[in-house]
């Protein structure tokens, strides 16, 4: 166990350069504003004097390395600046809205994995069958769907035409009260409070946006699962297992599947990247009060501190997710253990 702990720690250390890169790029992005940021932040009615004041206040009179140090110090203290439009600290707003985004993203990922993995594996095991062709068609169509368009199409069909889904306006219909805040996930919180009606209401709101996002992430996962499974099934060790008379179940679901999961785990990093991006679009379509729609609103009114804070938050979240993938991979594949 000691060796594994060491490995996990070393993987965490290896995430530091990525984190540093993220901070440097976000700093660069804040300094790339067109024109003089001080002029911009001072507003249209600014005088020379007030611009100079703001410049000093923002530290823009310092050298670039010093500016970076200030920026990094502010980050460490959790200071992402204040939103121009609401005047609230960006970090607070992001923290308040993050659970909504996470609830949506995680539900979508669970949903798509639950469908894509069995689909890809079955398609590979029955290569050339109708399920294989269906999988191929679904995969190609799936990566071609613009998320925002899928979302709108689902709203039209399930809300306007069929009336099955509630209005695409946020996490909970106004007839319900928000459940007590424990995890921040409405469905979980409501269930924990024993309020099944609210849980149902939250679930109904969640199902369309989560399906939209899941449809988008389904394709890459199914594609990779199928390809990895095909590769595993045609490898030498499967032939050895067959020649030793191992059962079909053992060969497919232990030998091949376990090996096929390795590239799939790696692909999940890319899928997370796509999901977090598509999340922004889905939140806008469904007026979902997460950090994505916050960023879109901020973009419209050119609220830069809010947008940069959002980009940084997403990047840190993504680095963390990648770290989790890395650790899982290390624990699953013995070959990575000896090379550290």
């Amino acid at each position: 166990m000691g060796q594994r702990t060491r490995l996990v720690l070393s993987r965490m250390l290896q995430a530091l350069p990525a984190l540093a890169g993220v901070v440097i790029v976000s700093f660069a992005l804040t300094r790339m504003l067109p024109g003089d940021p001080a002029v911009y932040f001072a507003g249209p009615a600014a005088t020379e004097q007030s611009i100079a004041q703001i410049r000093v206040a923002m530290g823009l009179d310092l050298s670039l390395p010093m500016q970076f140090l200030h920026y990094a110090r502010d980050l460490l203290m959790g200071d992402l600046g204040n939103s121009l439009s609401t005047g609230q600290p960006v970090l607070e707003e992001l923290a308040r809205r993050l659970p909504a985004s996470l609830e949506l993203t995680l539900t979508a990922l669970l949903l798509s994995c639950a469908i894509a993995l069995p689909l890809g594996v079955t398609a590979a095991v029955h290569q050339g069958s109708w399920i294989d062709h269906a999988c191929r068609a679904l995969v190609t169509a799936g990566v071609s769907l613009p998320t925002f368009f899928t979302g709108i199409a689902l709203i039209y069909v399930f809300y306007y035409l069929l009336g099955w889904a509630p209005a695409p306006l946020g996490r909970l219909d106004f007839v319900y009260l928000s459940p007590p805040d424990v995890t921040g996930f409405y469905v979980v919180d409501a269930l924990m409070a024993g309020d099944f009606e609210t849980a149902g209401g939250a679930m109904r709101q969640l199902i369309l946006p989560a399906s939209t996002l899941a449809l988008f992430t389904l394709a890459p996962i199914a594609r990779m699962a199928r390809a990895a499974m095909l590769e595993a099934l045609s490898s030498d060790y499967i032939r050895t297992a067959k020649a030793a008379g191992l059962s079909q179940r053992k060969i497919v679901y232990f030998y091949a599947f376990q090996n096929a999961m390795l590239p799939v785990i790696t692909t999940l990093g890319m899928v997370f990247s796509f999901t977090l991006g598509a999340n922004v679009l889905v939140e806008k379509v469904f007026s979902w009060p997460g950090i994505g729609s916050y960023a879109v609103e901020a973009l419209v009114v050119s609220d830069y501190a809010a947008v940069q804070g959002f980009v940084l938050a997403m990047a840190i979240l993504f680095v963390a997710l990648n770290l989790v993938i890395d650790i899982v991979y290390t624990l699953v594949d013995p070959r990575t253990r000896s090379t550290t």
Partner: peptide, 25 residues
């Protein structure tokens, strides 16, 4: 039926032995 024969009655050894074993078991 062959699965009961393979490994018990007739066995096989392959070339490229390192690839012939499950790499993560």
């Amino acid at each position: 039926e062959m699965r009961d024969i393979r490994g018990r009655e007739i066995s096989m050894v392959f070339q490229n032995p390192r690839a012939a074993l499950n790499p993560i078991r």
